[in-house]
Design a protein around this nucleic acid. Structure first.
Lengths: 135, 135
DNA sequence: CCGCATCCGCCATGATACTG
DNA sequence: CAGTATCATGGCGGATGCGG
């Protein structure tokens, strides 16, 4: 029994069990991996690169991420089918990460989101200044 | 595009465009408020409601959120200009939250993201099962 | 060297209780 | 009803070390 809002789900074809608003739904976990501190930036970095990136290249693009968090983030995303990890048997060995088809789909809204935030940052800063004045 | 390309040498106070990939950029904070644990769900809940919601209504829709986190999340979003808080001087007192224009813009990609995750949850679960088999 | 696992300090989170 | 205050905890992230 899922607690949560009763969404106006009038899907005539098939039931949609997934509900990100439901506390126990697995989609929450998947969303968290994408919207967590580093998930979105990692996905968008891979999207903007438009080619497989090595571990250190992702780390360089996602400024400030630690090895540990990058490793964990990529692992979570790979497990969820968002990222494909490829080991190249060369010398020295060489591992690349690329977006899986599913990762490419979620990358689209994530990139839109980062683009909006970047372009609207002045508005955000202005709103913060106003807010801080009266609080 | 400039995203991800933190030029190695540049003037420190140059009016550079916002870059979510840069460690110190304020846009990181704004992104974090939106992609944090509760930010996206709160925004999308307000978007789906399509009308101002009371504190307790948001809490009911965003299943599992605590008073403390909802208060903090709404406060952060209000400060960033994403949400408008309105106090109605009635008895009992009545406070509603609605999306500001900027919040409405970011709600669009966020809602797309949640929709993709919900519809693709079976793929995610299948990917996880495959991953867990070989790890 | 690159990728990733372990130890540990710290902050965000959450449960509970209290206030306007 | 709409929050705020206090305290306990777990996840985050840095430093370090190991394995390929």
């Amino acid at each position: 029994m899922m607690a949560g809002m009763t969404s106006p789900d009038h899907a005539p074809h098939e039931p949609l069990p997934a509900d990100v608003f439901a506390r126990g739904c697995s989609s929450r976990g998947a969303l968290q991996h994408l919207t967590g501190r580093w998930g979105a930036l990692t996905i968008v970095a891979l999207r903007l690169a438009d080619e497989p990136l090595r571990f250190s290249e992702v780390r360089r693009r996602v400024d400030g991420i630690s090895d540990r968090m990058l490793s964990q983030t990529l692992g979570d995303l790979e497990r969820d089918g968002m990222v494909v990890r490829t080991v190249h048997s060369t010398i020295p060995p060489h591992v690349t990460y690329a977006l899986a088809p599913l990762g490419l789909r979620v990358a689209d809204p994530l990139q839109q989101l980062t683009a909006i935030i970047e372009s609207e940052l002045p508005s955000v800063l202005e709103a913060r200044a106003l807010y801080d004045e009266s609080h």
